[in-house]
Design a protein around this nucleic acid. Structure first.
Length: 580
RNA sequence: UGGGGCGUCGACAAGCGGUAAGUCACCAGCCUUUGGAGCUGGUAUUCCCAGGUUCGAAUCCUGGCGCCCCAGCCA
C-alpha cells in the first residue's frame, strides 16, 4: 500500500480501486489474467545525468505500483550510448533511488547486460528477412526517410540476401568498418505515416568504450531496439514511460512480435512539469558547467541530490508524487504544492530552535546585571515526545532587526516604541527607548523593561496568573553572552518565471537573489553542535538544515562554524497583511 | 495538407449515461506564548465550442477549435 502513513487514496473506494488510468489498466489485466496476475515494472534511467524531481515521479510510480500490487520493480540502466554515459551518474542514481526510499533488492540490471542476447535477436531478425545492413550515410538515411507528410523511399541496400546481411553484420561487430559506415535496420515500411516505422536503425557503429563492457563492442543498440527487448527479457509486465514515446509503441510491439518473445505492455503518462523549475537534463548540465550553480547538488537545483542538500525529506517527495496523480495530459504543477508537502512533513518532525538572522541588541534595563536564568523551551509543540531543553536568559539579548519598527503599521504587533511583546519561553517586555547611529540612522540598540511576573509556564496551577497575560506579539531571541554564531544561506527560487524554459535563453530568467548568505547569525548555544543533515525549524523563520558539505559543527569560535541552508520559509501571513 | 495524443475551478485531478469528489492556491472567521501549526466555512448551475441521440450527457455520436509530441546512426 501507500508508503507513507497516510496513503488513504489508494484503492479505498469502488471495486477495482483504480485512482489513475494505469491502475485501471493493471486492474483490467489482472481481471483477464493477461500476465497471470503478475506486476513487474522497472525504472530505466539513462546514466547521463543526475536524477531530478521529474524522475522522482516516475520512480514513485513504478516502485509504488509494484508495492501496491504485490509485484516487483527493477532498476535498469539504459546504457546503450557509451558516448554520453558515465559511472558517476550510475552511482548517483542508485544513491538517489535508495534515498527516496525504494529497494530494487537483487534486481539491478543494465541494458548492456543484454548486448549479447540482443545481438542474437538481431541475427534472428536478419534470418527472418526483416532486418538488413544498410550502407547509407546518416545524411542519406535522413533524406530517404521522407518528411512528416511525404513518404520515404527504400534504401538500395534494403533487399540484400540474408547471407550477405549476416556476413556484413558479423563484420560490423568485428570492427571492420568505421563509425557511421553502416547500420543495421529493421525492414518495416518506408511509407508508414509513423516515422518510427520507416526502417528504424537498430545498431550503429561506435568505436567507443563503454563504462561496463569496455571495448568488447563497437556496435551499440538504439533505444527502440534495446528497450522493449530488455523489458521482455526481464519479464516486465507494464513498461511505463512518458508521452513522447507514444509514437514508438507500434515499433516496441513490432519487435517483440517479430521475435515471438514475452510481450510487455508499454503505457505512457505525462511527465512532471513544475512552476519555477527547469527539468531538461541538458540545461541542468549547462547550469552546472557554466557555474551558475555550484554543482548538481546545489540546493537550488531540482535534482534529488540538490533537494536532499536543501533539506527536503524523501517522505515529502513521495507524498507529492502521490498527490499530483498520474494522467496523460500535459500539466504544470504549482511549486506551492511541493512546498506544502514539505512543510507538512517538516512541521511534525523538525525541532524548534531560536536563531536571530539579523541581530539587534536588546537591553532589559530593569533586569539585574550578571544574572542568568534557565528557561524551559519545548522542542516541538506538534510532538511532545521530542522533549524540552533549557535556554539561558539574561539582561542583554539579540532580537531580529526586522522585529522593530520606529513607526509601526496599524496592525504591527511586534516591537515599536511603547509596545509590549512576549519573548518566547521568557517574559513580557516593554520597549521604552532605542538608540540610533546619528550618521546612518540605523537603529543600534533597544532598551526595554521586563515584567517579572510573566515568566513562561509560571502559573501551572491552572489559575490565570500574570504569566498568562496576553500580548499580541511573540518574538524569538537569543542571549547575547551565550549565543554562538553561524552562517545561514537563504535560498529562493532559481528562476523568477513560472516557465523559465519558455524563453529562447532560460538564463534571462535566473533569479539574481536566489541565494543570500548571512554571516554572524546568532544561534542558541546548543546549536553549534548540530549534526550535518539535521533538520530544524528556526522559530518564525522557516525550516533549515545543516549543510552536509560546508558545515563544521562544534568548530572553535573564529573558524567557520555551522552552516545552515534554508529549506523553505514558514508561511508568512504578515507579509500579506503588510503588502495590502 | 501525415501520424500519435490531450482538452473538467487559478494549479493538479476524480468522474466511465443518473444530475460536478478531493488536494494545493485564494478569501473569511475561530484559535494560538511561532502573524507557524490547527479548526470551520466560502469558492465550476457547469465540464473547449456547436449540433445530435436520450426522460436524463462532462460522460455516447457528428463536426469544428485549441494545445502537445514525431523527420538523431539521442533516450
Amino acid at each position: 500500500m501507500s508508503i507513507d502513513s497516510k496513503g488513504k487514496t489508494a484503492g479505498e473506494s469502488g471495486a477495482p480501486g483504480a485512482t489513475n488510468f494505469i491502475k485501471a489498466i493493471i486492474d483490467e489485466d489482472n481481471k483477464t489474467g493477461k500476465y497471470g496476475g503478475k506486476v513487474l515494472t522497472r525504472f530505466p534511467p539513462e546514466p547521463n545525468g543526475y536524477l531530478h524531481i521529474g524522475h522522482a515521479k516516475s520512480i514513485c510510480l513504478n516502485f509504488g505500483l509494484a508495492r501496491e500490487y504485490g509485484g516487483l520493480c527493477n532498476l535498469r540502466f539504459d546504457d546503450t550510448n557509451p558516448s554520453k554515459e558515465e559511472v558517476e551518474y550510475v552511482e548517483s542514481i542508485m544513491e538517489d533511488v535508495r534515498w527516496l526510499g525504494f529497494d530494487w533488492q537483487n534486481r539491478l540490471f543494465y541494458a548492456s547486460d543484454y548486448f549479447g542476447k540482443l545481438y542474437e535477436y538481431a541475427i534472428q531478425l536478419i534470418k527472418q528477412g526483416v532486418a538488413y545492413v544498410d550502407d547509407l550515410t546518416a545524411d542519406q538515411i535522413r533524406e530517404y526517410r521522407g518528411t512528416l507528410t511525404a513518404p520515404g523511399k527504400e534504401s538500395p541496400f534494403r533487399n540484400r540476401s540474408a547471407e550477405e546481411n549476416l556476413d556484413l553484420f558479423e563484420r560490423m561487430k568485428a570492427g571492420e568498418f568505421p563509425n557511421g559506415a553502416r547500420t543495421l535496420r529493421a525492414k518495416i515500411d518506408m511509407s508508414s505515416p509513423n516515422l518510427n516505422m520507416r526502417d528504424p536503425v537498430m545498431y550503429r557503429i561506435l568505436h567507443e568504450s563503454h563504462h561496463r563492457t569496455g571495448d568488447q563492442w563497437c556496435i551499440y543498440p538504439m533505444y527502440d531496439w534495446a528497450h522493449g527487448q530488455s523489458d521482455s527479457i526481464e519479464g516486465v509486465t507494464h513498461s511505463i514511460c512518458t508521452l513522447e514515446f507514444e509514437d514508438h509503441r507500434p515499433l516496441y510491439d513490432w519487435f517483440v512480435d517479430q521475435l515471438g518473445i514475452h510481450h510487455p505492455q508499454q503505457i505512457e503518462f505525462a511527465r512532471l512539469n513544475l512552476t519555477y523549475t527547469m527539468m531538461s537534463k541538458r540545461k541542468l548540465l549547462q547550469l552546472v558547467q557554466e557555474g551558475i550553480v555550484s554543482g548538481w547538488d546545489d540546493p537550488r537545483m531540482p535534482t534529488l541530490s540538490g533537494l536532499r542538500r536543501r533539506g527536503f525529506t524523501p517522505e515529502s517527495i513521495r507524498d507529492f508524487s502521490e498527490r499530483i496523480g498520474v494522467a496523460k495530459r500535459d500539466s504544470m504543477v504549482d511549486y506551492a504544492l511541493l512546498e506544502h508537502c514539505l512543510r507538512e512533513d517538516l512541521n511534525r518532525r523538525a525541532g524548534r530552535v531560536m536563531v536571530v538572522l539579523r541581530p539587534l541588541k536588546l537591553i532589559i534595563d530593569n533586569y539585574p546585571e550578571g544574572r542568568v536564568e534557565e528557561v524551559e523551551a519545548i522542542n516541538n509543540p506538534e510532538d511532545s515526545g521530542m522533549g524540552k531543553r533549557t535556554l539561558p536568559f539574561s539582561r542583554e539579548l539579540y532580537v531580529e532587526r526586522d522585529d522593530f519598527r520606529e513607526v509601526p503599521h496599524k496592525k504591527w504587533f511586534r516591537l515599536a516604541p511603547g509596545s509590549e511583546v512576549r519573548l518566547k519561553h521568557g517574559y513580557i517586555i516593554k520597549c521604552n527607548d532605542y538608540k540610533k547611529n546619528p550618521d546612518t540612522g540605523e537603529v543600534t540598540e533597544l532598551h526595554c523593561t521586563y515584567d517579572p511576573g510573566t515568566r513562561s509556564g509560571e502559573s501551572t496551577d491552572g489559575r490565570q496568573g500574570p504569566a498568562d497575560r496576553k500580548v499580541k506579539g511573540t518574538l524569538h531571541w537569543v542571549s547575547a553572552a551565550h549565543a554562538a554564531e553561524a552562517e545561514v544561506r537563504l535560498y529562493d527560487q532559481l528562476f523568477t518565471k513560472e516557465e523559465p524554459d519558455s524563453d529562447r535563453d532560460f538564463r534571462v530568467n535566473i533569479n539574481p537573489r536566489s541565494l543570500e548568505i548571512l554571516k554572524g547569525c546568532k544561534i542558541e548555544p546548543g546549536l553549534k553542535d548540530a549534526r550535518p543533515g539535521e533538520r530544524l525549524q528556526f522559530l518564525r523563520h522557516g525550516y533549515f538544515c545543516v549543510d552536509t558539505r560546508d558545515s563544521r559543527p562544534g568548530a572553535a569560535t573564529g573558524s567557520s562554524g555551522p552552516v545552515f541552508n534554508r529549506t523553505t520559509s514558514l508561511r508568512d501571513t504578515w507579509a500579506k497583511i503588510e503588502g495590502k
